[in-house]
Each structure stands twice: as C-alpha cells, then as structure tokens.
Design a protein around this nucleic acid. Structure first.
Length: 247
DNA sequence: AAGGGAGTCAACCGCGTTGTA
DNA sequence: CTACAACGCGGTTGACTCCCT
C-alpha cells in the first residue's frame, strides 16, 4: 500500500488521505452504475478500502457530474456574501443556491477571504508588513474585479445587458443561480413576510441587507471605489437580480 | 538557493438528524 | 417507542504551493 504524504491507513484498516486516480475511477464507475446512496455499501462493493463517509465526500466534492472547477465568479462571490449575512455558516444552504459549487468549496472560500485573523504580536512586524503589501495587491485586484462586475451589473440594471459570446456560459449560470434563489432561498427569506411583494420587501428590509453592509468587519473592499455609493448601488443591483430584471 | 510564513484546498472528525427495522 | 445505521453538516487539520526575505 502506497502511503501518500503522511496519510496512510486507519486503525480499522481503511485507507485515508488523498484519493488516487484509480480510486476515483472505481468510485465513479460504481456510482454511475448503481447511483448515489448507501455509501458504506459503495465502499465495499466498489472494491474501495475506504469508509462510506470518505466515498460520499469524494463524490460530492469532486467526482459528481456538473461540479464547477476553478475560481468563483464575482457574481457567485456576491451571492455568497449576501447569503452568509442572512444565514451565517449554513454552507450547504448557500451551496444549494450556487449550482456546481459545494459547501466545502464555499466554506473554504469564506475562511480564506473573510475570516478575521487573530491579531499579530509586535514580534511579527516583518510578516505583518508583508501581509499588508499582499493585502494591498489583493485589494487592487478585487477593485478591478469589482469595477468589472459593477459595469456589468449597471448594464443589467439599465436593461442594456448584452451577453458576449464568450460569456454565454456565465449567463446560463446566472439563470440557474437566480432560479435557485427564487425557488429555494427566497421562500426562506420571506417566510415571515407574506403581506408584501417580494421585490418591495427585498429592497425595504434593512435586516436582509444589513449583513452585506457590515462588510467592513470582514475586510471586503467594495466600499473603497471612489465616486460610488456602493451600498445603494449594489443594493439596487442585487435587488434587480432578485427581481429577475437582468434577463 | 534555502528557509520559513501565509494562503489554499482536499480530506478527516465529531456530532446532530433522519430513516428504518 | 427504541435502538441502530446511514447520512449530512460544520469545524478542523494536514499537506502542498507560492512568495518573500
């Protein structure tokens, strides 16, 4: 048995650690033939020396068809930020609104980008300086991304949205995201607000927007763009997104 | 070139929930 | 109704990579 980088075999004899291509192939084959579920059976019958849990996780987070790889789009990031402000660490709920993304991915993204780090001591002056420089660089990148996103959303709001051919996939993704938001997320958001219309209540409910506007807490740099009232602008943009006006 | 810190991501663990016998 | 197994979720950890000094 090959032991990969410090991982190896558990006390009960089951393998743990990174999956090999062969293991992936076996799991893929078995699940596509027999379907998901009964993971402990999958582990045994597929000839995998893994726990059922491990098989399920590998399938859900990596092998399942339709999963998106690569960086989250600015739209997805915005949605994560907003939904996290509503629901907190309900990663699986948030993931359900983002087709092709897993709770693990979203959780990692959030921890990486927004988790507040413990304050460093004076003895860590040098790394701090470095971190600051990196932060500045990231900030620049995020601002560029944000400007792009803002531009696109403004076009959407003005009803002048033309999907470039290369972005046809993104447009389809946004369709799916909005459908999910309407079907799964909005009913939760408005379950105690039956008397108002959906779009009105979205724009009016300070509670719903509150989380997004507390982004100072998590070092999001949306509010550093000069010349724009970001709170209002993005609030309107996301509201129009929820209304389906981008279509 | 080497060492070390920070960032990232895949995977594990523990626990609560749900389903079933 | 109860016990047990399976599942799902959120938190945490370990290893790898990148970048800086």
């Amino acid at each position: 048995m090959v032991v990969v980088g410090g991982w190896g075999v558990r006390e009960d004899g089951l393998r743990k650690g990174p999956w090999t291509a062969e293991e992936d192939r076996l799991l893929n084959e078995y699940v596509s033939m027999h379907g998901e579920g009964r993971w402990s059976t999958v582990a045994k019958c597929a000839g995998l020396n893994r726990s059922g849990k491990s098989c399920r996780l590998r399938w859900v987070n990596y092998l399942k068809p339709g999963l998106k790889k690569g960086q989250l789009t600015p739209q997805e990031q915005s949605i994560i930020i907003e939904l996290h402000s509503l629901w907190g660490n309900k990663w699986s709920m948030i993931a359900r609104c983002l087709p092709g993304r897993t709770d693990n991915e979203i959780k990692n993204y959030w921890r990486t980008h927004f988790k507040i780090k413990p304050k460093s001591s004076r003895s860590e002056e040098k790394p701090r300086t470095r971190a600051l420089r990196r932060q500045q660089f990231r900030k620049q990148q995020q601002q560029q991304e944000y400007q792009q996103q803002l531009h696109q959303l403004q076009q959407i709001e003005e009803g002048d949205y033309r999907v470039p051919l290369a972005q046809e996939d993104d447009k389809q993704d946004m369709d799916i995201i909005c459908t999910n938001l309407e079907e799964q997320c909005l009913p939760v958001m408005f379950q105690e607000d039956h008397d108002t219309t959906m779009s009105d209540s979205i724009v009016d409910q300070e509670g719903i927007w509150g989380g997004l506007w507390n982004l100072d807490d998590v070092h999001v740099h949306l509010d550093h763009t000069p010349g724009t009232n970001n709170k209002t602008t993005i609030q309107n943009q996301v509201a129009s997104l929820f209304r389906g006006e981008y279509k």
